[in-house]
């Protein structure tokens, strides 16, 4: 598991300060149908390699981040505010 996360607000912090929610997936539209929602809510890939997840900086700035990491090498390639990724304000 990656141990240092570059929080865009706080700097490099250990993973113990964070809570991991899981894969950062594209949310289906409200009319996408039961199969698409079943996938979105319950089904996850388990990739070897690049992965994007929602992490919450619980013991720091308390912002939701999207952390990009590699599940094979444990490299963390980036972390951005989740609101910024959705075109919101961080």
């Amino acid at each position: 598991m990656a141990s240092l996360i570059p929080c865009p607000h706080c700097g490099r912090r250990p993973k113990e300060e964070f809570t991991i929610r899981g894969a950062a997936l594209e949310r289906p539209g409200p009319d996408a149908g039961q199969a698409a929602w079943m996938d979105y809510v319950y089904l996850r890939d388990n990739p070897r390699g690049a992965y994007r997840e929602y992490w919450h900086h619980t013991s720091g700035c308390r912002r939701w981040l999207v952390v990009s990491r590699n599940t094979a090498t444990h490299d963390v390639t980036g972390a951005e505010d989740a609101a910024a990724g959705k075109g919101g304000k961080a």
């Binding site: 706080c10 700097g11 912090r13 250990p14 113990e16 300060e17 619980t58 013991s59 720091g60 700035c61 308390r62």
Partner: peptide
Amino acid sequence: STTTLTGHIA
């Protein structure tokens, strides 16, 4: 200033 874990306490 910053918020951080100190031991197990934020």
